[in-house]
Design a protein around this nucleic acid. Structure first.
Lengths: 329, 329
DNA sequence: CGGCAGGATTAGATCGTTCAAAGTTTCTGG
DNA sequence: CCAGAAACTTTGAACGATCTAATCCTGCCG
């Protein structure tokens, strides 16, 4: 095996000093054109790669971003995190960062892990998903001035940290408008119990659009836990009443899938639209609201690199989802 | 902010030398009981954490394992990788390793990434998922003696690298036996086109069990691409023939979900069993074969740590999946 | 009581990079 | 042609751990 290629090897070959090689890598503009070319040739010829550990030891920065991976929750929404992670890894890569995973059972353990990762690996930043009211994690990180971004708005107004989110209300509003445009008037909403930021947001888009169109939403909203069986039960129940809805907007694909089964047995056709555009939706032809996960991941990385390089970036990004029309609406 | 805690800080506080502290961490048995206790107290009191970068620079080992994250494929099987990753991260953590993600569009790019990761980050090992016939990646890694494990058997007999896999044949055999026990005789198999190692394996379990029970499998096997629509089409077709099957074993939950829809409209009830036990299966009450993903991930880590520490471990692990019975069989 | 084996501990060098500061060359204008 | 500035390059130290080799104990045997 060939001997290790270090910055000194490159320097010797290019007839310059170590520091000049380092400058070519980290501050190319201060090196004379011709010298730089010579060094770059040597780097290519030797296949030199800067040793990350040595660099990290000197600079205290690891070019590593940590993300928590959660066990797939019940329901069919697991693939959302999957796609987000993929996007994150890809964008981070392009920006010269890598993604490190960690797990945690609860908030306390997660905070312990932050401490570990920061102490041992000099982690540069964290990406948090699924923030909730009064999240202790963001407080801990903010207090120590650790750069981080959340995917998901902080639902407490006082939290001023950077975040990226998808505008759920805009998504359901778009769905509702589409249904109105295609002639529907009695449009129901199948969502989660009030109190979750995400769920309330998605409901709001439907409610405001309906109200703006001069329609009454009374009796058209159902709240239930997430799940296929739950969705089926609720829509079946709605359809059994007087003046049943002709269309239903759902807060998730799981609910929508259930609704679809209930709709199948209905007297009149019922349009169904889901949320998240999971693979199942694509498979069964369910129309759904698609979150721009790759874009969201990219913006997370943008925000982080901005923070890390001290560039001022707008720290709040709200992305608009897209409605994917298939057979069911 | 408090000054950084290094091994020297600990040494001073415990009234010993740096090396003794290092020994307490890396070779506790050579340190005298009482000294060790004193050092451990100092470590705890100061909240010392060994700097990974410095250790890595000296030892050339990063305690980092790389895993490729793939974009979610079509179909509902995305959560499989998700769960595997979660298990991997958790077990690796317990063994003192962390998981690093990378992406790649094709094999060449992936090999380029290996080079990068090894050169810059001193990666300790790789976990590959989804190997195929004549995989260039395993060859590249083996040639350079980089430790790695694949999740999935190599389907070329000549590849001798360590692997962990789930015995698909055992899974479908178990399903078939269960169906036989509950009185079924005409049991169909809905699978993928011949040629994929995984698919052929799953088919074999059904076929041998049927044959062993003295039953004829002629006309009971269907091959199709993965997908819900495909599953529905094939079972509908099977049910339309003379002597239709009373039960069907599927190579995936996607196919099973489709089959379930076809079965719903059938004259006689048809038992359906899927494969992978995805969250959708749980949601709709579909019986399915559950891969022990957490265990598989754990065994991957075991194999890798074994390789890294030079301990001889049996390098081929075949795990048996479990049949999860729900409403559909 | 001296010598010696062997374990426990220490001191110094080292990994590959970047920082700080000093050194050298090149350019500009009087 | 030279002083002074600007641009570029070099040198030595430092980051925080581990490795090697040397030193210090301690107990045991002759």
């Amino acid at each position: 095996m060939a001997e290790k290629v270090t910055i000194a090897t490159v320097a010797r070959r290019a007839q310059v000093s170590r520091q000049t090689v380092s400058n070519v890598l980290n501050a190319p503009h201060i090196v004379r054109e011709e010298t730089r070319r010579r060094v770059e040739e040597a780097i290519a010829a030797l296949g030199y790669r800067a040793n990350q550990a040595a660099r990290q030891m000197r600079t205290g920065r690891s070019r590593l971003i940590a993300v928590r991976i959660e066990p797939t929750r019940d329901g069919i929404n697991g693939s959302v995190l999957d796609r987000f992670l993929h996007g994150l890894t890809e964008t981070a890569d392009a920006a010269g960062y890598r993604v490190l995973l960690y797990t945690a059972r609860d908030d306390d353990q997660e905070i312990g892990t932050y401490d570990d990762l920061l102490g041992a690996y000099d982690l540069d930043a964290f990406v948090l998903t699924g923030t909730k009211h009064g999240d202790p994690r963001t407080a801990w990180l903010a207090e120590r001035e650790v750069p981080f971004v959340t995917f998901g708005r902080p639902w407490d107004a006082l939290d001023g940290h950077p975040w990226v989110d998808v505008d759920g209300a805009a998504g359901t509003a778009q769905v509702t408008r589409h249904l109105l445009d295609t002639g529907h008037r009695r449009i129901a909403f199948l969502g989660w119990p009030t109190g979750s930021g995400v769920g309330d947001d998605r409901c709001a888009g439907w409610r405001t659009t309906m109200t703006a169109a001069g329609l009454d939403v009374a009796g058209l909203r159902r709240e239930t836990e997430d799940g296929i069986a739950e969705g089926e039960r609720e829509l079946r129940d709605l359809l059994a009443r007087d003046a049943p809805p002709t269309a239903v907007v759902c807060a998730s694909d799981s609910l929508a899938l259930g609704a679809l089964q209930a709709a199948r047995g209905a007297a009149a056709p019922v349009a169904v639209v889901g949320f998240d555009d999971t693979p199942v939706a694509a498979a069964v032809g369910l129309s759904s609201v698609s979150q721009p996960l790759a874009a969201a991941a990219a913006r997370c990385v943008d925000l982080l690199t901005g923070l890390l390089d001290g560039q001022p970036t707008d720290p709040h990004v709200l992305l608009t989802p897209a409605l994917v029309l298939r057979h069911t609406a």
